[in-house]
Simulated assay, not measured.
Amino acid sequence: MNQEMNGVEAEKFQEKIDYVFKVVVIGDSAVGKTQILSRFTKNEFCFDSKSTIGVEFQTKTVTINGKLIKAQIWDTAGQERYRAVTSAYYRGALGAMLVYDITKRQTFDHVARWVEELRSHADGSIVIMLIGNKGDLVDQRVVQTEDAVEFAEDQGLFFSETSAFSGENVNSAFLKLLQEINKVVSKKSLECSNGIKGNGNLDGAALKGEKIDIISGSDLEISEMKKLPSCSC
């Protein structure tokens, strides 16, 4: 009886999800993409990290402006030999976290190329957040904040500096990205309801959270792990 009731409660909770947003985390290898994702979804940092192979994803459910949103966050490998594989995963992404390492100038120099690749494969309305990671390594900084801010403003990106190690600004950066995606989705849903065609291919009805994994418990901030046998960066 209890199991049946728990199943009913979980199903009711599941039905409350308003949107499922796909987000990709991109950038050069070893900039801390998986560590940022792990910090956001599980509040964990793995010291024994390994490079991501292929593509993996995790999810987290949050409340934004009264809407229950499930973020499906894809972690892509930064190595050149895997980029041809991961490019297919840009399809359907509503947001992107573009990460560089503030202690490695080369990773920032490659950001423009990542933006170009992202815009070549993703929807034109995709929301992009530029992230300068490893902010805790102040003494090793080689990329100045001003340079990143200037680039972000020029490209129309949102920007934040984070530390996956300490957790500084990680949650706020992801939540800001999801908030901006929600604005885009809400605007396009309104346009559709008014019979106005938007510039992208976004269908508000298609984003409704249907047939997703059952979520149990009363806490709205729930994270899940998919295809992650070991911690990686």
Rank of each mutant, 00 (worst) to 15 (best):
G66R: 05
G32L: 09
R39K: 15
E44H: 14
T63C: 05
N65K: 15
Q35M: 04
L68G: 01
F45G: 05
T41W: 07
R39L: 06
T63S: 03
T52P: 03
I64G: 12
T61W: 03
Q35T: 11
V55Y: 06
V31S: 08
W74G: 08
Q35P: 02
Q35S: 15
I64Y: 07
K42P: 00
V62H: 09
K70F: 07
S38R: 08
R39S: 01
I53Y: 01
K50Q: 10
I36P: 08
F45P: 11
N43H: 10
R39N: 11
Q72G: 07
K33Y: 04
N65Y: 08
T52G: 02
N65G: 14
L37F: 01
Q72R: 10
S51Q: 11
I53C: 00
T59F: 05
D28I: 10
I53W: 00
I73E: 13
G66C: 11
K67I: 07
A30L: 13
F47N: 15
C46I: 12
V31M: 07
L37Q: 09
A30C: 13
K70R: 15
Q58W: 03
K70I: 05
T61E: 10
E56W: 05
A71F: 04
T52A: 04
T61A: 11
R39E: 03
F57A: 02
S49T: 09
I64W: 01
C46A: 08
T61I: 12
F40V: 07
K67Q: 08
L37A: 02
G27I: 12
L68N: 12
K33S: 12
I69T: 12
N43G: 08
K70C: 04
S29T: 04
Q58N: 15
V55A: 10
F45W: 14
I73M: 09
D48V: 14
T41N: 04
T41D: 01
K50A: 02
V31L: 06
K33A: 08
L37H: 04
T52Y: 04
W74T: 00
A71P: 05
D28V: 02
T41E: 01
G32C: 10
D28W: 11
I73W: 02
N43T: 01
I36V: 12
D28Q: 05
V55E: 09
